[in-house]
Simulated scan of single mutants.
Amino acid sequence: MTIPLRRLVVIRRRYEVLSMLNDFAIGSWFLVGSVFFLYPSLMDAGVWLFIVGSAQFLLRPIIRLAHRLHLQRIPASNWEF
């Protein structure tokens, strides 16, 4: 069974979209957290948003690793170019 190039492109694009959504979420947490720091009553929530954003940075290499492992499960001899 050969894996068409089109399928490989679909796999790559899915991981790219996942990575972009993750980056968007990280930016959102840090932006909202920064605004929260302008108001003393929201400062604790701002700290938590920074913690969530920082933890989410760990997802970036996990997404890349998952993509690589996904492609490694497909034997190169099955790729159709």
Rank of each mutant, 00 (worst) to 15 (best):
Val32Trp: 00
Tyr15Met: 00
Leu58Arg: 05
Leu59Asn: 08
Trp48Asp: 10
Trp29Asp: 02
Val17His: 05
Val35Gly: 02
Phe37Lys: 07
Trp29Leu: 09
Gly33Ser: 05
Arg60Cys: 03
Pro40Thr: 09
Arg60Gln: 10
Ala45Ser: 12
Arg14Gln: 15
Ser28His: 10
Arg64Ala: 13
Ser19Leu: 15
Asp44Met: 10
Val52Ser: 11
Ile62Glu: 11
Ala45Lys: 00
Phe36Cys: 01
Leu21Thr: 14
Asp44Thr: 13
Gln56Val: 01
Leu21Val: 12
Ile62Tyr: 06
Ile63Met: 04
Val35Thr: 08
Glu16Leu: 10
Gly53Lys: 01
Pro61Cys: 04
Arg14Met: 13
Val47Gly: 06
Ile62Leu: 12
Glu16Pro: 07
Arg14Ser: 14
Ser19Met: 15
Leu31Cys: 11
His67Ile: 01
Gly33Ile: 01
Gly27Asn: 13
Ile62Cys: 08
Phe30Trp: 07
Ala25Gln: 08
Arg14Phe: 13
Ser54Met: 09
Trp29Thr: 03
Tyr39Glu: 15
Tyr15Phe: 06
Gln56Thr: 04
Trp48Ser: 14
Phe37Gln: 07
Leu65Gln: 11
His67Lys: 14
Ala25Asp: 09
Ile26His: 06
Met43Gly: 14
Leu42Ile: 10
Gly27Thr: 03
Phe57Asp: 10
Phe30His: 02
Tyr39Ile: 14
Leu42Met: 15
Ile63Arg: 04
His67Thr: 06
Met43Thr: 13
Ala55Ile: 08
Arg60Glu: 08
Val52Asn: 08
Phe50His: 03
Leu18Arg: 00
Arg64Gly: 09
Ala45Cys: 04
Val52Lys: 09
Tyr39Asp: 15
Leu31His: 08
Val17Leu: 07
Phe36Met: 07
Tyr39Cys: 15
Ser34Tyr: 06
Ile62Thr: 03
Phe57Arg: 12
Arg14Asp: 15
Trp48Gln: 12
Ala55Thr: 07
His67Cys: 07
Phe36Glu: 06
Gly27Leu: 05
Phe57His: 12
Asp44Tyr: 12
Ala25Met: 10
Ile51Asn: 02
Ala25Ser: 11
Leu58Trp: 05
Leu31Val: 11
Val52Ile: 13
Arg60Leu: 11
Phe50Met: 02
Arg64Tyr: 11
Leu18Gly: 02
Leu38Lys: 04
Phe50Val: 03
Ser28Thr: 14
Val17Ala: 08
Pro40Ala: 11
Ser41Asp: 14
Gly33His: 01
Leu38Gln: 05
Ser19Ile: 10
Asp44Trp: 13
Leu65Asp: 12
Val35Arg: 06
Ser19Asn: 15
Leu42Lys: 01
Phe30Thr: 01
Val35His: 07
Phe37Ile: 07
Pro61Gly: 00
Phe24Thr: 13
Gly46His: 02
Leu59Trp: 05
Met43His: 14
Asp23Arg: 12
Trp29Ser: 04
Met43Lys: 15
Gly46Thr: 01
Leu59Lys: 00
Ile63His: 01
Arg64Met: 10
Asp23Leu: 15
Ile63Gly: 03
Ile63Ser: 06
Leu49Ala: 04
Pro40Tyr: 02
Gly53His: 05
Val47Ser: 10
Gly53Gln: 03
Arg60Lys: 12
Val52Leu: 09
Pro40Val: 05
Ala45Asn: 05
Ala55Asn: 09
Tyr39Met: 15
Phe57Cys: 14
Gly46Ser: 01
Trp29His: 08
Ala25Arg: 02
Val17Met: 06
Leu58Tyr: 06
Leu21Arg: 14
